[in-house]
Design a protein around this nucleic acid. Structure first.
Length: 454
DNA sequence: TAAATTTACCAACCCCGGTC
DNA sequence: GACCGGGGTTGGTAAATTTA
C-alpha cells in the first residue's frame, strides 16, 4: 500500500507521465535514465491511481510486501528495501506466479547464460555494438548520450533481468562483471605487484584509475592491495602470533555482542566465576570483522587471519581434529558423497553447508566446503567441465564404491573403529575455544621476524 | 547511485610423509 | 628416488553491504 505522506518536505519528483512526454532534461546520469526506462514500462500505480516513487514508500509496508518473496528482508538496509520495492515487486510477483523463488548468492551457470543471452538480445534489438559500450557507457564519451537514449527507449532494465529471479540491480552488477574486459586476469606476478604498489603511492585509493593502468578491475586491485599493502609475515605462524590471533578473535566477537548479550554474559560470570561461559556456535565463524582482527594481530593480513582461524577452530571444535584422520576421514567422505547424492540439487549454491556439516560431525561449514572441493578435485576427472549433478553422479557411482572398499581394507588391517560423528553443539565453552592448550598454536615459539622484515 | 569496503566462496600451490 | 595423496597455506573472484 502506498502512503500519501502529506507532510513530506522533499519536492515530488517528476511523475512518470511527463517522462513519456519527454519533459525531462536529457543530461541525467546513466543510472537514472535506466530507472526511468523501466519506470515508464512497469511503473506501479497505487490503488488510488497515483504514481509512486521511492520517496513515497512507507518502509513498514514495503517490508511487509517483500517478505512474501524474501523472508529475511528486514535485515537489509532501508534504502535497499525501498529500491527493491519500487523496482522489483512486479517482477517478484511474476516469478512467484510461475512458482519460482527469488534467489541470492552465487549465480548459477544457467543464470549466467541467461544474462549473456539477455545482453546479446538487447544489443541486437538496439544496434549497440558491444557489451562494453552497453555496460561501460562512461568509457565512450562521444556516444554516451546516444547509447543512454537507446537504453531508455528499449527498457534496458527489463531486458537484462528477464528470466532471472533476483533483484534487478544484482543482475546488472553481475552482467557488468561478466562483460568487464579487465576481469578474470588470473594471478598477479611480481611485476604486477610492483606496479600496483607504485601506482598506489602515486594515486592513493583511486582503484578505478589504478585498475585501468594495470588492466584489471578496480575490485581486483583494491583487494590485492589489502593483502600486500602493509608489511606482513608469510609462512608458518609463530606461537605468539597464533595467540594474538586467538585473543583478537575473542575480543572482536565480544565487542560485536549487543549490550544485552554482554549484560547476560556479565551476570553469568558473576554466578559462575570459574569462567565456564559458553558462546553460540555461529558467533565463532560468522560475522567476524577480519580487518579488526588484522589490526590487532599486526603481523598478518585479514585473509591470513581468517584462514588460520578456520583451521584452529576446526581443531578445537573437534578436540584436535583426530576424528578426521584415517578410517574416520574415509567415513566422512563416504557420508558426504551419500548426503550430496540424496540432496539431489542442481547447483552447488543450493547446498545448505551448515546442515551438511552436521552430518559429518561437529565441524564449521567452511571445513566441509573445503573437503568437498578436495574430493571433487581429487576424484573427478575434468570436473571443471562437468555440471554439478554430473560431478555428484560420478562421485556416487564411481568413487563411492572405491572409498568403501578402501575403508573395509583399512578396518581389517588396523582393526580400528569408526567413531560416530558427534552431533553439532549449539554452544561451546569459552575456555574450550579460547583457552585451550592444544597443539595448534603454531610452529616455533618465537616471532619469525618483525613485521616488515622478510 | 557509484564507489569502496567487507564477507563469502573457490581454487591453486607447496610441502611432506608414506608407499612402491 | 619417483610418485602419490593429503593437509596446510596462500591467493584469486563473486557477492553483499556500507559509505560518500
Amino acid at each position: 500500500m502506498w502512503t500519501a505522506d502529506q507532510g513530506r518536505q522533499k519536492p515530488r519528483r517528476v511523475p512518470a507521465r511527463s517522462l513519456q512526454k519527454g519533459c525531462r532534461e536529457s543530461t541525467r546520469e546513466e543510472e537514472s535514465s535506466l530507472e526511468s526506462a523501466s519506470n515508464s514500462a512497469t511503473r506501479y500505480v497505487s490503488e488510488d491511481g497515483r504514481d509512486s516513487d521511492e520517496s513515497d514508500v512507507d518502509l513498514g509496508s514495503a517490508v511487509k510486501q517483500l517478505q512474501e518473496f524474501i523472508p529475511d528482508i528486514q535485515e537489509r538496509a532501508a534504502t535497499t528495501i525501498r529500491r527493491m520495492y519500487r523496482d522489483d515487486l512486479g517482477r517478484f510477483r511474476e516469478f512467484k506466479a510461475q512458482g519460482v523463488a527469488i534467489r541470492f548468492g552465487k549465480f548459477s551457470a544457467k543464470e549466467n547464460e541467461q544474462i549473456e543471452k539477455n545482453v546479446q538480445e538487447f544489443l541486437s534489438l538496439t544496434g549497440i555494438e558491444s557489451a562494453d559500450k552497453l555496460l561501460y557507457t562512461d568509457r565512450y564519451p562521444e556516444e554516451k548520450s546516444l547509447i543512454t537514449n537507446l537504453k531508455r527507449k528499449h527498457a534496458f532494465r527489463l531486458h537484462i533481468g528477464k528470466g532471472i529471479a533476483r533483484p534487478w540491480k544484482l543482475v546488472y552488477y553481475r552482467a557488468k562483471k561478466i562483460f568487464d574486459v579487465n576481469n578474470y586476469k588470473g594471478r598477479y606476478n611480481e611485476e604486477d605487484t610492483k606496479k600496483l604498489k607504485a601506482y598506489h603511492s602515486l594515486h592513493g585509493n583511486d582503484w578505478k584509475k589504478i585498475g585501468a593502468m594495470v588492466a584489471r578491475s578496480s575490485l581486483s586491485v583494491a583487494l590485492k592491495f589489502s593483502q600486500i599493502g602493509g608489511h606482513r609475515n608469510h609462512g608458518a605462524w609463530s606461537k605468539t602470533e597464533t595467540q594474538r590471533l586467538i585473543k583478537a578473535v575473542e575480543d572482536v566477537i565480544l565487542k560485536k555482542m549487543s549490550p544485552q548479550e554482554l549484560r547476560e554474559l556479565d551476570s553469568r560470570l558473576q554466578e559462575d566465576p570459574e569462567g565456564r561461559l559458553s558462546i553460540v556456535r555461529e558467533k565463532l565463524y560468522k560475522g567476524i570483522s577480519w580487518v579488526e582482527v588484522e589490526a590487532k594481530v599486526e603481523t598478518r593480513n585479514w585473509m591470513q587471519c581468517k584462514s588460520k582461524w578456520t583451521e584452529i577452530l576446526t581443531k578445537r571444535m573437534t578436540h584436535g581434529g583426530f576424528v578426521y584422520r584415517g578410517v574416520n576421514a574415509l567415513q566422512a567422505k563416504i557420508t558426504l558423497i551419500e548426503r550430496l547424492y540424496e540432496l539431489n540439487v542442481n547447483d552447488a549454491n543450493e547446498i545448505d553447508w551448515e546442515d551438511l556439516a552436521s552430518a559429518i560431525g561437529d565441524v564449521p561449514p567452511p571445513f566441509v566446503q573445503a573437503k568437498f572441493y578436495k574430493l571433487k578435485a581429487a576424484c573427478v576427472p575434468f570436473w571443471q567441465k562437468k555440471t554439478f549433478p554430473e560431478i555428484i553422479d560420478y562421485l556416487y557411482e564411481t568413487s563411492l564404491p572405491l572409498l568403501k572398499e578402501k575403508l573395509e581394507k583399512k578396518m581389517e588391517k588396523n582393526k580400528s573403529q569408526i567413531q560416530t560423528p558427534s552431533a553439532p553443539k549449539q554452544d561451546f565453552l569459552f575456555r574450550d575455544i579460547f583457552y585451550c592448550d592444544d597443539d595448534s598454536d603454531g610452529e616455533g615459539s618465537e616471532e619469525p621476524s618483525a613485521p616488515g622484515v622478510p
